[in-house]
Amino acid sequence: MARRVILPPEVAVEPGGEAAGMASMVAELLRANLADSPARSRLARRARGSATLVTDDRDLGVTVTFGPGAIVVSGTAFGTGPVLSGGWLEMAAVCTGTRSPLRALLRREIHVTVRRPVSVLVATAFAVKVPRSAGPDRG
């Protein structure tokens, strides 16, 4: 039986806000990850709600909202949902898989504020993390 193709959800940036640059970066990261990973696309399509990513050393945040068939990245940390925060370099290292999230949590390099829905935190963390299939580098 043919396997069902999972199309990645649309990823859009909500215009405006001082963190528009960070929102664009997160949106591009999500687009690339979802295009490369059916597992990420599947989870992202099922997820509902908002999670916020904060770079606390830059005092900037973005909110990722999962809706039906689309993800919207906002340039503000408005969400009432769960929050993943940490320094810019630490967040980048965790997202790209160069640092273990568990190790970063234990070392308090990143922090999680658990709020409902918790499932959206899992979906966000999984979606922003670069899949191994993307390779370590481009030579």
């Binding site: 963190a19 960070m22 340039g75 790209t96 370590p136």
Partner: peptide
């Protein structure tokens, strides 16, 4: 410069995954 990029004062285009993976180098 990192603040300028994150706040949108400078627009950055390219492979964000590679850029983030080598954030320390970019810094």
């Amino acid at each position: 410069p990192v603040d300028a990029a994150l706040r949108g004062a400078i627009t950055v285009r390219g492979d964000m995954r590679l850029l983030l993976r080598h954030a320390e180098h970019v810094k």
